[in-house]
Design a protein around this nucleic acid. Structure first.
Lengths: 153, 153
DNA sequence: CCTCATTACATCGTGTACGATTAAGTTGTG
DNA sequence: CACAACTTAATCGTACACGATGTAATGAGG
């Protein structure tokens, strides 16, 4: 019979099922796949949805701040914001006080989209069928590992 | 003074800092950024590392099984496996018993790489500076949400 | 006033993700 | 045996991620 001691101290340290990074990748992709059918009617991808969340809270804001908030660089954000602009959800004129910076603002259409988005969180929780308390625990655990990873990279 | 009731029941339900999906995305990308400098000397990206973990455990195995294990489809796996093949880490001849299927096997070089990989997990834990027990808790929470998401998508 | 380092974005190249389609092989059924 | 239904990969198009590089604007020091 195989050993059944604490998994941290025994067996293959490279076992796929034990890797937190594997669970993180799969969890991220799988949870996003729950959002996809809900976001599709709004014409948003999940990263675009996160940017819109940031804007609904803080617009108008510079691209730099969006990047800091979402931990994304301009290589990702520039084309993403262009696509939101092409959809008529945001504008991004240059800041007259600093011609390097773009000020990302919501169009009326972008503002209006918020109402449809209001229902997303509850729908996701319903589809997951998990307790809100358990999701809050997960959120706290993720926040901890994000802090640890930012400090350790 | 602002209200400070339970966050689940008050305030803006679209608040970015409250979204589990946001924490998941950032955690996934941030933790992977801890792996990147460790994997780079091995010539592997993180998804390639996960495939190698699967192969070190189960090779030879069909592409189908790799996909099932990692929750990836052929659109992702085909080019990824081609790159591993180009690096001389794997072979993927057709299965004579079923000419549709490819049997992914490790080359001696692919097998040998495992020794370098053995040190990755401990190095990551060290860089994160988190208790193994806390990481195991996180792993359990992630496994729960993966199951919920798979069921609910 | 004039460099020069810094900052804010944009662009490019590589590598995933993923839906959709295609192509080839296999299998069940009449 | 014929053939439709199914399975396995590959391919294509779109959209992130991210490192590296380019460019214009800003600001600090001489």
């Amino acid at each position: 019979m195989a050993t059944t001691t604490s998994p941290a101290l025994t067996g293959n340290p490279l076992e796929l099922e034990r890797q937190v990074c594997f669970a993180l990748s799969v969890a991220s992709r799988t949870v996003l796949s729950v959002y996809r059918p809900l976001l599709e009617p709004m014409g948003l991808t999940h990263p675009q949805y996160l940017v819109m969340l940031a804007l609904w809270q803080h617009a108008p804001m510079p691209v730099k701040d969006v990047g800091a908030l979402l931990q994304l660089d301009s290589g990702t954000l520039s084309p993403l914001l262009k696509r939101l602009e092409a959809q008529g959800l945001v504008t991004r004129p240059r800041n007259p006080q600093d011609e390097r910076a773009l000020t990302v603002s919501l169009t009326p259409r972008g503002q209006a989209l918020r109402e449809q988005a209001e229902r997303i969180p509850e729908q996701v929780v319903a589809r997951l069928g998990m307790e809100v308390a358990e999701l809050e625990d997960l959120h706290r655990a993720l926040t901890r590992v994000i802090e640890a990873a930012v400090a350790g990279r």
